[in-house]
Nucleic acid binder design. Structure first.
Lengths: 358, 358
DNA sequence: CCGGATTTTGTAACCGGTTTCATAAAGTTC
DNA sequence: GAACTTTATGAAACCGGTTACAAAATCCGG
């Protein structure tokens, strides 16, 4: 900014103005400027009440004047606290996780913490690697997704007494370390709802359950609920693939290419459901008269499609928020009790109804 | 490990076996165990070639045995490098940003860096705050979005010689510090395309341009392109709001509630476009016979709607990847030249065509 | 105005790595 | 084998804060 009066004087001296640029100001400099010891400056920052108002003011002045910014690394080294929380998600661009990330970040930021983010790409090996990196970075706690981790993961954390929470899962067995919906129960509920409407021939379009205990649990939910009624999904009515709209369309088409067709199709996630519903429309099938389609996770478009889609609403943001709070509390030794099971609500819309009467 | 021969002797002394649990192992311990100095251990880790194979092996053994993990804070303090990059996005759950985040993270991780993530909620004040926090945390570089920042932001970074890049914008003037599409140009192209089809009455549905120079630039693009042909958007054909599908529907309805109606509606982002298209369908309008609707940003659902939507494809992931690479290169003093302008490609689908012949 | 309790402040030892510089060991050359 | 490089190691200073402990200043009742 200060374009200065360069040409003003007769270019006699070469200005050594840039002088102090290199030597960054530290606590020592501030202390000297304020005429106190470094200990006092440190106290004035972290524990103002124990410093006399007089000095506190002088120090504040010096800090501002020198534009001092405390060095996080030094502080972390000294206090053994980085005020940093690491989160490892399987993917970052998936709606749920993106919303959770946002909530976590915002909650942490408010509590004076910073979020370190990494991605495991649904690979336990990579998850372990990322966690290890975070431990090296000195995070104060960790947020993970799911309960099924690499076998070395838990020992690593337990050994270092590193606080962590598993999100997007809930299970009475491990209450206290997990925060999320009960995936199994959610799909039992959904399946019961459909079965109660009279459906008997169920189809399932699922995302890969590889390294994904949430998806597995959901699948099991459908199976278990059906089994209780003596029903099962026929092999040709079951399809598994990626979690894209395109895949949803393709798999749905495959399911419809059978005889008899299923009368209710349960989709393992939102994108698959959107794909299935759009493909059904393209095929000229009427929902719910000809068949019912339901999804999992309530992204905005679900309720706006020509036929709004019945689904399970997962409060991702809330899960993130609670995870962050619980973790921060644990790190700081306070205790914060919150409901750890996130209720996954069944949202019934027009895409589901009684099976067609033959 | 050395569970020792505790019960060997007759349980005389109370075993202080748990002893070393608390005292975490540090470089010193490793050095002692390997019978070398700390300097050598440090070198064995960071600069293996200068250490003899013999010692290197002994040290590796000690490290593994003691389960030592280097302390990032100490290292950061000593090297003045945190191997950490901060990114501040206006929002995290928006598709573009989520994809970019993912790409950045993955790229950084590969280069041995960790991503710190924060969110500005489209508030310059908050952005500044987050950036400040990151500076304190000692990040090596910063990734921002847009070019319009809080006035104190750039000075803060420049003063500390902190490398940074602005993403999702491109502008010849500031080449070198920005990576993204030329938002203005993209919408000029789009508008020209529509005008060339014969459209004259344009409608615009835009997201708020408050603190969003990308959205503003896009809007200007439409205006400028039209002005070149002596055209302008009538006030009643212009609507602005949030960036949700619901809002898109509402605003579209409002635009259609005019006489004469626009024959081409340009939407400022993907969600608004999806909403507009779905509302058009609900209103029984045929695309593109009755009118054309186009969007910005190509999310998957755009191509799967009953009438696939013409839009501009923004390579968010690529933007993130390049940003990460450029920044890392800059931090490490290498130079890495990459195309900084991300081409925003016009994707023409069924939702646009010539205006109806009256 | 004194002795003891209380509050403020300073000194210096950490935190756990990296790195400079000196020294010891090994290798080269003639 | 002496003189000179080159290479491998160690001792100790340093990065920039925090904090235990001691010393100094202030307050207080009697």
């Amino acid at each position: 900014m200060p374009r200065a009066r360069t040409t003003q004087t007769r270019a006699t001296e070469t200005v050594p103005a840039v002088a102090d640029l290199r030597r960054s100001v530290g606590l020592r400099e501030v202390a000297r400027a304020a005429g106190v010891s470094t200990a006092t400056v440190s106290r004035a920052i972290n524990n103002p009440d124990v410093v006399s108002a007089d000095l506190r003011e002088r120090i504040a002045g010096a800090v501002k004047e020198l534009g001092w910014v405390p060095d996080g690394a030094a502080r972390a080294l000294s206090t053994r606290r980085s005020h940093t929380i690491g989160a490892v998600f399987p993917a970052l661009s998936v709606g749920d996780f993106a919303h959770a990330t946002h909530a976590i970040q915002s909650e942490l930021s408010q509590a004076g913490y910073t979020l370190l983010l990494a991605c495991s790409e649904y690979e336990p090996e990579l998850e372990l690697h990322q966690v290890r990196k975070f431990v090296e970075r000195g995070v104060d706690g960790l947020i993970l997704v799911g309960q099924a981790h690499h076998p070395e993961l838990e020992p690593l954390l337990v050994q270092r007494a590193m606080p962590f929470v598993n999100t997007f899962v809930y299970d009475r067995e491990t209450h206290g370390t997990c925060i999320g919906p009960d995936n199994h129960k959610a799909l039992v509920t959904m399946t019961d709802y459909l079965a109660d409407l009279g459906h008997v021939r169920f189809g399932v379009i699922a995302q890969s359950t590889r390294n994904n205990d949430r998806a597995s649990a959901r699948l099991e939910g459908v199976r278990d609920a059906l089994a209780l009624r003596g029903l099962a999904v026929r092999p040709q009515h079951f399809a598994m693939g990626e979690w894209t709209i395109a895949e949803g369309r393709a798999l749905f088409r495959k399911l419809m290419d059978t005889d008899p067709r299923p009368t209710a199709v349960v989709c393992g996630n939102a994108h698959l459901a959107v794909g299935a519903v759009l493909e059904a429309a393209a095929m000229g099938l009427r929902l719910p008269e000809d068949l019912s389609i339901v999804g999992y996770d309530d992204i905005e478009v679900m309720s706006h499609l020509p036929v709004p889609v019945t689904t399970v609403r997962v409060p991702s943001a809330e899960i993130g928020r609670i995870a962050a709070r619980v973790l921060v509390a644990r790190v700081e030794g306070k205790d914060y009790s919150a409901p750890l099971e996130a209720v996954a609500e069944l949202v019934i819309r027009a895409s589901s109804g009684p099976p067609p009467t033959p």
